[in-house]
């Protein structure tokens, strides 16, 4: 389905954009010497496919009332988020170098309205799906057909509020307006998710009355297909569980819990950029 507000680009083009987004992510975190590269890199394919081929948006009109909302519930993945917004044209890529510095709109965790395209404040986990319910309820009241796409982390699924909201979405019949996406990278702040708090994202969402669509979160064609499937009308709300690798695209960050919230040094940055140029293998 295409519309003037969807870029509709090929999978090859999406892969090129993903390379640029990954390079922004590592450069931003390296420049700030702080931030969250691991969970940014794991979500790149989801974000790129969404922002170019599925999210109804107009970067020149960020306040367009009928736009789809992208809600970053895993609010620490700001290098990912800001890179997407800049590449999509919400603001200049020049802004990215100011990430996390005094006076920059690009705050460490997403701050609503600080820069164009930032739809909610994040940083305290578990709040995006609830926010989406309010947005979706308002859209239904006002006869607007905008939808909410909510990106959650798998560590974030530990938060009880996620499940308060997960039970409410089908209860209120908002499945045609809210699509959840889980970046299932298997690592949270303190280590591997299975050792910190084991979750079963697909089974848990199914148990709460959702239809779950699973995909390889780094196979761009598969991700793009999964998001298309999620958009199709269905009686249940849909949750895309994307199986991903934390730090994907940079060998020393991949599946490495220490790069959840750590910056690369200068040598590591050079390695990262070289690897990202080669693309995902």
């Amino acid at each position: 389905m295409s519309s003037p507000t969807i870029a509709s680009v090929s999978v090859d083009e999406l892969r090129d954009i993903a390379k640029r987004v990954r390079a922004h992510i590592v450069r931003m975190v390296a420049a700030a010497q702080s931030g969250h590269p691991g969970g940014s890199l794991s979500a790149v394919e989801l974000g790129v496919s969404l922002f170019w081929n599925h999210l109804r948006c107009d970067p020149s009109r960020p306040d367009w009332p009928d736009r789809d909302r992208f809600l970053l519930s895993k609010g620490h993945a700001t290098p990912f988020y800001y890179s997407l917004l800049a590449e999509r044209g919400y603001f200049s890529t020049d802004l990215l170098s100011g990430f996390r510095t005094l006076g920059s709109p690009l705050q460490g965790h997403a701050s609503m309205n600080a820069a164009p395209g930032i739809e909610m404040s994040g940083g305290s986990l578990g709040q995006g799906l609830s926010f989406a319910i309010g947005q979706a309820k308002a859209a239904r009241m006002d006869g607007r057909d905008s939808r909410c796409w909510v990106l959650l982390g798998d560590g974030e699924l530990n938060e009880g509020q996620v499940w308060e909201a997960a039970m409410a979405v089908p209860h209120f019949g908002l499945g045609d307006r809210i699509i959840a996406m889980v970046d299932r990278n298997g690592i949270q702040n303190d280590g591997f998710a299975d050792t910190i708090m084991r979750t079963h994202p697909a089974d848990m969402f199914r148990g709460f009355g959702w239809q779950v669509i699973e995909c390889d979160g780094h196979d761009m064609a598969a991700v793009d297909q999964a998001l298309s499937e999620a958009e199709r009308p269905h009686e249940k709300p849909r949750c895309v569980v994307a199986y991903t690798i934390k730090g994907r695209g940079v060998s020393y960050m991949e599946n490495n819990p220490s790069f959840h919230g750590k910056a690369p040094n200068a040598d590591q940055l050079a390695t990262a950029i070289a690897e990202i140029e080669l693309g995902l293998k």
Binding site: S130, F131, G134, Q135, K137, A138, G160, Q161
Partner: peptide
């Protein structure tokens, strides 16, 4: 579910 209630209210307010 008070936490969810607050989030829903925030979303409603963000939508006007």
């Amino acid at each position: 579910a008070e936490a969810n209630m607050v989030g829903i209210a925030a979303g409603l307010a963000a939508a006007g």
